[in-house]
Amino acid sequence: MFGEKAVSLVKELHRCPPEQLHPVNEDLMRQVFAEMTALFEANKSDIEVNDDNKMIPSIHLRHSALEHNRRCVLAYLKQRLNKITQFRWDHGAVLPEEIQVNMQEHEKQWFNKYNKSLANYMLSLNGLDITQNTVPPKSLKIQVRCLQDYGELETDSGDIIMLTVNSEHYLPLSECEHLIKQGVLQHMGS
């Protein structure tokens, strides 16, 4: 049936867990494009060959299938971009290995451009990093436990803190947020 492959593309994306990204199914996409080309050719030949309107229903059918395919493919790609956008907000400007490995070359380029746009925008706000401060601050400082030997951490005020494994610290939220995201520190709920 026409359009089945395109739908399976979308379904595949739907099945993927939100924090993961599977590699682009280029093979399936190529099949969809091939199907589209075939349908288009069939339509073209039908229009050229037949003057009367006998083939109109089948032309419509193929046309709808073509539009449907296009819509599915574009949705698939756009949704992947949405996911990558979300990863940027969750993980920062450098994505984890397991995600990068599954990104296609074009998507990586898109990501770099997105990063640049975002950085330019943040510059216009006096360098306010809008990817930080994702949760309302409950207190000025938070209690964190160090999960790995990280070494020296330089704070904004110029102080140096040595982060050794299994030490506990009470630090301003702004200093630790990115380390918590990276998994070096663990936030202990107070």
Binding site: M29, M36, E41, L66, E67, R70, L74, L77, Q104, H106
Partner: peptide
Amino acid sequence: MALKHMPSAF
């Protein structure tokens, strides 16, 4: 990624 590979009308 996509539109380029589709038939011209689309």
